[in-house]
């Protein structure tokens, strides 16, 4: 926790990377530059603290396996963009917000409370029954990308989520 605060240049560089990847994937960052930069700073702070960029608007205990769903971009971004036009932190916003047809606001937390998350970690994921497939099918929990191969790819070719964000789908 004593790591040096991220430098302005680092924040700028990461902002540009996130923005480029967002636009390539059809997503948009919040046009409120100061607000967005502050969130990017938060992502860098969390990356220094925990070793992964967990959501700046959610608390972390620094255990990656418990935080897989909130490594940015989180599992909740897309449903929140669909329903509320922004992700929970308002780092990502919808087209309508970008075009100023709507304004951004604080939205409800979609991530289940701690008690329910623990139950999910312990329980089995609800996947379809095993069929006689030549390969298992893996699903990216962030963007829904599917691929049939022995193991998930190192990073999702669509949204760049890491291998451990994939779940066995079929």
């Amino acid at each position: 926790m004593s790591a040096a605060a991220p430098l302005t240049e680092e924040i700028q560089a990461r902002y540009e990377k996130i923005k480029r990847e967002a636009e390539e994937g059809g997503y948009h960052l919040n046009p409120d530059q100061a607000f967005t930069m502050n969130l990017v700073r938060g992502l860098l702070v969390n990356e220094q603290r925990y070793g992964y960029p967990s959501c700046p608007c959610r608390i972390s205990f620094g255990k990656r396996e418990e935080d897989l769903d909130i490594i940015c971009p989180c599992d909740y971004r897309d449903p929140d963009l669909d329903e509320f036009n922004a992700c929970y932190c308002a780092l990502y916003v919808s087209d309508a917000i970008l075009k100023k047809e709507l304004s951004v606001g604080s939205i409800p937390e979609r991530r289940p409370p701690r008690s329910e998350r623990k139950a999910v970690l312990a329980g089995s994921s609800g996947r379809l029954t095993d069929m006689a497939l030549p390969f298992p099918v893996w699903r990216c929990r962030v963007c829904g990308y599917l691929c049939a191969r022995d193991t998930p790819p190192l990073v999702c070719p669509v949204c760049k989520a890491t291998k451990d964000r994939f779940e066995r789908f079929i």
Binding site: F35, N38, L39, R41, G42, L43, V45, N46, P56, C57, R58, I59, C89, A90, L91, S106
Partner: peptide
């Protein structure tokens, strides 16, 4: 609040 969160700020 969280020190990294925009809405908290």
């Amino acid at each position: 609040a969280l020190s990294t969160c925009g809405w908290c700020a």
